[in-house]
Design a protein around this nucleic acid. Structure first.
Length: 218
DNA sequence: CGTGCGATCCGCT
DNA sequence: GCGGATCGCACGT
């Protein structure tokens, strides 16, 4: 697998351009490595009603207005963390939500992180109950599998002096013809914009994704 | 200062 | 398929 760390220039582009290029890339945090299979782009203020930055800069979303290549981690539904890569130059406020991936290293550690004591899954014991493909399927699951939490908000994932705690690697190339795009989900506004990207047929992506035909009318 | 709701997940039906 | 869990944040008053 390509071990080169993605540089800041990679992220210094519009999020709809960065998003499909992130597919197949690998995030590494300690013993766990995840290959990205599904992502969503979110635009700058004013342009994208579904973006956290739509109404301008706030304490919550300030990281997204920072330098590209940093991690924007937010807390939602009172229990979930989700992670984004910041795109565009400092001050623009856009990013890419990491929606799903395949755990390619450290599945045992990822499964332990995902394991919730007190639930029915606990009865089957650690290391059981969660199928391999579900370990990082969904934005909050991916965050748990990678051990990403509030403390990683603002973390620089690009090559920099010293070894970043959490880094984004090149990974193996993805067949360009296997990349699909379609409407984002979970957003009530601007649902028609096809800024969700995924690897066609990958088991870690939700089974059915309506995608935009190649010859779609505009 | 009060309130409505969200880029979700999980378990049960 | 459906609803509950659960809380920080942004906005309106």
């Amino acid at each position: 697998m390509g071990e080169r760390i993605l540089d800041r220039e990679f992220f210094d582009r519009p999020s709809p351009e960065v998003a499909p290029d992130l597919l197949g890339r690998v995030l590494v945090h300690g013993p766990v490595a995840v290959r990205l299979t599904e992502v969503e782009a979110y635009g700058p203020p004013g342009d994208d009603p579904a973006s956290h930055t739509y109404r301008g800069r706030t304490p919550r979303n300030s990281v997204m207005f920072g330098a590209p290549g940093h991690l924007y981690v937010y807390f939602t539904y009172g229990m979930h963390f989700c992670a984004n890569f910041v795109c565009l130059p400092e001050g623009m406020g856009s990013g890419v939500l990491l929606r799903a991936g395949e755990v390619i290293e450290g599945a045992d550690v990822a499964r332990t992180r995902r394991h919730r004591p007190g639930t029915a899954a606990a009865l089957t014991g650690p290391g059981r109950g969660i199928p391999e493909r579900d370990l990082a399927r969904g934005p909050a699951r991916l965050a748990v599998a990678l051990g990403i939490g509030r403390e990683h908000n603002g973390l620089d994932c690009c090559a920099s002096p010293g070894s970043p705690e959490l880094r984004a690697l090149e990974g193996d190339p993805v067949d360009p013809t296997a990349v699909r795009c379609g409407p984002r989900t979970g957003v009530s506004s601007a649902a028609d914009i096809p800024w969700r990207f995924w690897i066609d047929g990958d088991p870690t992506v939700s089974p059915y994704r309506k995608h935009v035909p190649k010859t779609r009318p505009v």
